[in-house]
Design a protein around this nucleic acid. Structure first.
Lengths: 159, 159
DNA sequence: TATTGTTATACTCTATAACTATA
DNA sequence: TATAGTTATAGAGTATAACAATA
């Protein structure tokens, strides 16, 4: 009965991935935002004017959760809700000028975070890693740029 | 102002890592356990007789949380709390025979999970990926076999 | 009647702090 | 006084369901 096998790729992925997420969260907390905020800001920046429903659908969460997240961003002056005159039921979401400036800072922090995370790898290895992860992500049907952490995860613990 | 950069290694790690964790959680839920349960069972299996305090310390969580987790495992007949006659303040934690059988099942599921996750990679690529992740894990000071998900993570969202 | 967004509510997870028993 | 464990409580995050406004 051999216990004490070394962790395989799946465990390492979950372990290192959770560490990467936690480190990034710590970094951006200095900018006054958390990871869900950043994800939403990115999605709105990439497609200005989209509705809360479309965000909820792409994130795989319930619309009432988007309400809470957008409420927070709006309160901090980062997102505007503009009534759509054609269909007054929904909003068009837009980033404010302040949010544009914030996104620049976030991109800088993200780049520095990535350098720190890959500090032990040379450029070739970093490219190799990215390629392997892209292969897995595509094969697993993950939406590019959308973190699965919005969906309800049963337990945050170890795999 | 170029938005729409492709995601880098850090984002991919967090994205694929969260997906791996969620898939594993779904798999083992059929065995009646969740990822924190499995982590604890593994730690007790690897060092039978250890105390709740030592678990809390290694996991980086508060002792009262270990109480809750061990309560659940004990209620399901997977863990025994044995009083230490030398020092009646603490418990020695041991797996039951049923837990030993369960661990075998969990190892099978974990192996199958790993195969599924790495389905798009050949054996060389899989070994490459494991090596790169081990390098990062070591460089980042991660404890082998211990998932950072036990510690408080500010937000589950995207990096 | 269907759709967008909102509110009210409840449930889960987790930490903090006070507490018990033992040393 | 110090340590192992427990309980009580509170806070954050999230889903569900009922609701209002618009179509």
């Amino acid at each position: 009965m051999s216990t004490h096998r070394p962790p395989g790729a799946a465990f390492l992925l979950a372990q290192v991935g959770a560490h990467a997420a936690a480190r990034f969260a710590a970094r951006i907390s200095e900018l006054g935002v958390d990871p869900p905020d950043v994800g939403l800001l990115r999605m709105i920046a990439g497609q200005p004017g989209r509705s809360q429903q479309s965000l909820a659908e792409q994130l795989g969460v319930v619309p009432s959760r988007v309400v809470v997240l957008v409420d927070g961003l709006q309160r901090r002056g980062l997102v505007e809700r503009r009534r759509n005159p054609q269909d007054r039921r929904n909003y068009e979401l837009h980033l404010t000028a302040e949010a544009d400036r914030l996104m620049t800072r976030i991109r800088e922090v993200a780049a520095s975070h990535e350098d720190e995370l890959c500090a032990g790898l040379d450029d070739d290895q970093r490219a190799q890693l990215t390629g392997l992860l892209e292969t897995i992500a595509a094969r697993q049907g993950l939406t590019p740029g959308v973190h699965p952490g919005y969906r309800r995860m049963p337990g945050q613990g170890p795999p």
